[in-house]
Design a protein around this nucleic acid. Structure first.
Length: 885
RNA sequence: GGGCGUUUAGCUCAGCUGGUUAGAGCGCCUCCCUUACAAGGAGGAGGUCGGGGGUUCGAGUCCCUCAGCGCCCACCA
């Protein structure tokens, strides 16, 4: 035998991912397997990675998403598509700026001291040094990304895409500049979009107090959870139909602290039923109040500075107070004036928080800001989802998506940050606005050369919404763009369905005239083994890199794929599950060791059909079923089902039965070992292909040992085609009988404490047409059950001095001197009980006239067959019991 | 206040368009270091499918309802 003929012999008894994975991870990339070719003429299949933040470390959520994407892209590549998976990172405006500010602060440097330009330079330097960590981590997962096409949201090309997008939207009047209330984060000192605000319940207080009427005729009561805002009140609103207040509308109240007269107005927004039915109106610090003020023509009084301390618009005693201190101070002052009515504390209500730093948001006028008229973009985005041009998986997300589109305020895209895409708008001293792709020299309106660019940067999501095509070269008509846009599928977490996915669809359609992708797969949030959120304080965070170190990337990938059921919003992942993934890889490895032990190398040649044994026909048939299941599952994004089908086939069918049954042939004399080896190698090789998209490393490592002439890597191999001729129901039935016989004897041994080493004779009775083929597996019965098996017709009478084990299809007889009759009686009566129970159920069904007439005929036939089967089994057991006395 | 999801073995979950003796992994018990694998093999215990009602010949599977848990959206001060 040559060296290759002993491929299996060189394999260690344990699979070692630490040795294997780094080797392949680099080899694949270096050999350019994942570099896509827009000219190949193959049908394209493109996925863009959801760009992780430069600040990021790989967490399990990323690991899940990348596993799913890699599974899809590797399979597509094997299926003959021109597969492209585009890598890249997001500059992540706020997140990154905050991180860098923090590191600077450790050096005692404040951002403002440094100045804008120097600060941004520092962020770039930081990005170069630390920003790419996550890229290295993604590589360790075996992700088949095309690294030659790596992008960054702030690289030159993407920055130009951002400018072009901004200008086009501006020219289409879909972007405008205006003074609106924005969601202000006093900690990060920037405005946020509605989607970046998270509403959480907090224990606050509800203070009800009185505003005295200016004419002295009484007072009106109002309630608020933010009593300090009363310093900026410019109105009181009541419902127009509220008779309690009709007489008061048009009158004024007097502000207790500064004596301002404040009008009482009528507005439909006010709920008569809630509280006192009268609302204080603080237009500068509440969105509703702002709207009421617009309708009623009330003025705005801004009482806050950027850090949420009170400004000079309030009476001196409150100036400079922090908002929370002011809340107490104002409440006390109201009480001192005898205007406090009631207080409810704690009062539970929802408050907006910054999605980054979780500070409470203050609605605030932050000067002129840029907005996108989102409402005008939703139409096509919604239609596409409804008519199936964009398909969501799991499909329930479609509803969430369309519902969200129905009710949108304009999108604030100005951010008061330094790290990001500077807004491409310039202002001249006369206040003219010039919006342009290239930095303009003069004002387009008055020709003034004194231009100042907008200080603000764009919301991070403005650039990420362009990602599916900006990464491919848009706005240029590049070859990549032509070939790979629209993308095939987008995979991401449902938590950014609105923040990102919906916006990509809207902007994509508006800017490119096409929907950016066909399918959207929304994956779940990964929780710990008990379903709890992973958090540092709970100490239950699973670090994927640690898991890769400990169990291998394949183990992590497999466990994630197996957990991705899609049925629920969260999926649990425990270290145990990852360990199970590692065990699976090891199982596969060892099965391969056996198969390849005597494999001569080269393309496995299936022996001619007439030389196939029953076990072999069965194995081919089961393998075919597995292939069909995997295909169906992956086509529908049911990753857990695909992984499960493979797990079951490899472990329960190939290993537990297939290999065990074939061992006899492998060790036999003559041609048999060769046939068996070829057949097993053939099945294994195809199985490796099916597994490769999910567990690329271990499959590649094993596959290499086949010594195939072509291709040079499993990554380049083709996806298996179904072979219907291999489906063999007859073989499955016959082997099912063999399995039953073997299992029954094993159970008998176990119950009676008979050592597996004790050999004895057994006679099996099976259906006449199966006798011969079942008999052909006698040697298997000897190895698997330790019996010398004789197979006869099921109708043969029971032999004296034996016991009969009743099977669903036939029986097995064993010599009576093998067992203890008390134990046997025990076993039989238990079996009797079970059989009796199910028999009663079927009998009842068959006695039901309605069932017989209304159920489908084949269902009735099935039930009859089952009934007969059970009767036979039961009779067998009863006969045994009678004999035992 | 709307909407979505979920409740099946000790734990975590599968059970597609209603008809299988309700499954898997982990955990647990017994036996086995048998020459692919102890990260393994063989056998086993364990569930009236959250409660109630309904549709149907037949419901874990469809409908209603109640309850628990989780999430999303929302301008009730």
């Amino acid at each position: 035998m040559s060296d290759t003929a002993r491929a299996g012999a060189e394999m260690a008894t344990r699979y070692d991912p630490q040795e294997v994975e780094p080797r392949w991870a680099t080899a694949w990339v270096e050999r350019g397997y994942f570099t896509a070719d827009p000219h190949s003429g193959k049908e394209p299949y493109c996925i863009v990675i959801p760009p992780p933040n430069v600040t990021g470390r790989l967490h399990v959520g990323h690991a899940l998403g990348r596993t799913i994407e890699d599974t899809l892209i590797r399979r597509a590549r094997m299926q003959g598509f021109e597969a492209l998976w585009v890598p890249g990172m997001d500059h992540a405006g706020i997140a990154t700026q905050v991180v860098v500010e923090r590191t600077l602060r450790e050096e005692g440097i404040e951002r403002r001291d440094l100045g804008r330009e120097a600060f941004v330079e520092r962020v770039w330097a930081w990005k170069e040094q630390y920003g790419g960590e996550i890229v290295e981590q993604i590589k360790r997962m075996g992700a088949s990304l095309d690294w030659t096409r790596e992008r960054f949201t702030m690289d030159e090309g993407l920055s130009r895409a951002v400018r072009v997008a901004f200008v086009r939207l501006y020219e289409a009047d879909l972007i405008y500049r205006g003074e609106r209330l924005v969601n202000w984060c006093p900690t990060d000192r920037t405005g946020l979009s509605d989607s970046e605000v998270e509403h959480d319940e907090v224990d606050g207080e509800l203070v009800t107090f009185r505003y005295p009427l200016s004419d002295g005729s009484g007072a009106i009561e109002v309630a608020t959870t933010r009593v300090e805002t009363m310093l900026g009140d410019t109105g009181i609103a009541v419902h127009p139909g509220d008779e309690r207040y009709t007489a008061l509308v048009g009158k004024t109240v007097t502000h207790p602290f500064d004596g301002r007269e404040i009008p009482i107005v009528a507005d439909h927004h006010v709920d008569k039923e809630f509280g006192t039915g009268a609302v204080k109106v603080t237009p500068a610090h509440d969105q509703n109040d702002f709207d009421i003020a617009q309708r009623a023509g009330l003025p705005l009084i801004n009482i806050l500075q950027a850090d949420a301390t009170l400004n000079d618009a309030v009476p001196p005693e409150f100036r400079g107070l922090d908002r929370y201190a002011a809340r107490t101070a104002v409440r006390d002052a109201i009480e001192a004036k005898g205007l406090l009515v009631t207080e409810e504390r704690p009062y539970r209500h929802a408050v907006g928080h910054c999605y980054r730093c979780h500070s409470e948001i203050e609605p605030w006028i932050a000067g002129l800001q840029w907005f996108v008229r989102v409402g005008e973009l939703t139409g096509p985005a919604k239609e596409a989802a409804l008519d199936g041009r964009v398909v969501f998986a799991p499909e329930r997300w479609q509803r969430s998506y369309t519902a969200w589109l129905d009710n949108l305020r304009d999108w604030n895209i100005s951010r008061q940050l330094w790290w990001g895409h500077r807004i491409p708008a310039w202002y001249c001293p006369d206040g003219h606005v010039t919006v342009a792709i290239e930095d303009p020299a003069v004002c387009t309106e008055c020709g003034s050369g004194e231009l100042r660019q907008d200080d603000d940067v764009l919301d991070t999501w403005f650039s990420s919404q362009l990602w599916p095509y900006s990464t491919l070269g848009w706005p240029d008509e590049t070859e990549d763009l032509r070939a790979f846009y629209p993308n095939a599928v987008l995979v991401t977490g449902y938590e950014i369905l609105y923040l990102w996915v919906a916006r990509m669809v809207m902007a994509g359609y508006e800017l490119t005239g096409q929907l950016p992708f066909r399918d959207v797969y929304l994956n779940s949030i990964v929780r710990d083994g008990q379903g709890r959120k992973m958090s540092k304080s709970l100490g239950n965070v699973i670090d994927p890199i640690e898991m890769i170190d400990r169990y291998g990337a394949d183990a992590l990938r497999f466990s994630l794929a197996r957990a991705a059921t899609g049925g629920q919003q969260d999926i649990p992942l425990s270290e145990d599950a990852i360990e199970a993934g590692r065990n699976f890889a090891n199982k596969l490895w060892n099965a391969s060791r056996l198969v390849l032990r005597a494999y001569p190398g080269g393309v496995p040649a299936l022996p001619p059909a007439e030389r196939l044994t029953l076990a072999e026909r069965w194995l081919l048939s089961r393998h075919e079923t597995c292939l069909a299941e995997v295909d169906a599952a992956l086509d529908e994004y049911r990753f857990a089902d695909a992984a499960q089908a493979l797990y079951r086939f490899v472990w329960s069918e190939l290993c537990d039965w297939g290999l065990e049954l074939e061992k006899g042939r492998l060790d036999a004399a003559g041609e048999e070992p060769e046939d068996a080896t070829q057949l097993l190698a053939w099945v294994l090789e195809r199985t490796l292909r099916l597994l490769h998209p999910i567990v690329p490393f271990v499959t590649e490592e094993i596959w290499q040992r086949f010594g195939l002439p072509d291709p040079e890597s499993l990554s380049l191999a083709s996806w298996p085609e179904a072979i219907e001729a291999h489906r063999d129901p007859a073989a499955e039935t016959a082997l099912g009988a063999v399995q039953e016989i073997v299992t029954a004897i094993r159970q008998f041994r176990s119950k009676h404490g008979i050592s597996p080493k004790d050999r004895f004779g057994a006679t099996a009775g099976v259906r006449a047409d199966l006798a011969e083929v079942v008999g052909s597996q006698a040697d298997a019965a000897l190895r698997l059950a330790g019996v010398t098996l004789e197979v006869v017709d099921v109708g043969r009478d029971k032999t004296a001095a034996t016991t009969r084990l009743a099977l669903t299809q036939g029986w097995v007889e064993l010599s009576a001197d093998l067992f203890d009759s008390a134990a046997e009686r025990d076993r039989l009566s238990k079996q009797r009980g079970e059989l009796d129970g199910t028999l009663a159920k079927t009998a009842k069904k068959l006695a039901n006239e309605g069932f017989l007439t209304k159920a489908a005929p084949e269902v009735v036939d099935q039930e009859r067959a089952k009934h007969d089967r059970l009767v036979t089994q039961l009779a067998e057991v009863d006969a045994q019991l009678a004999e035992l006395g």
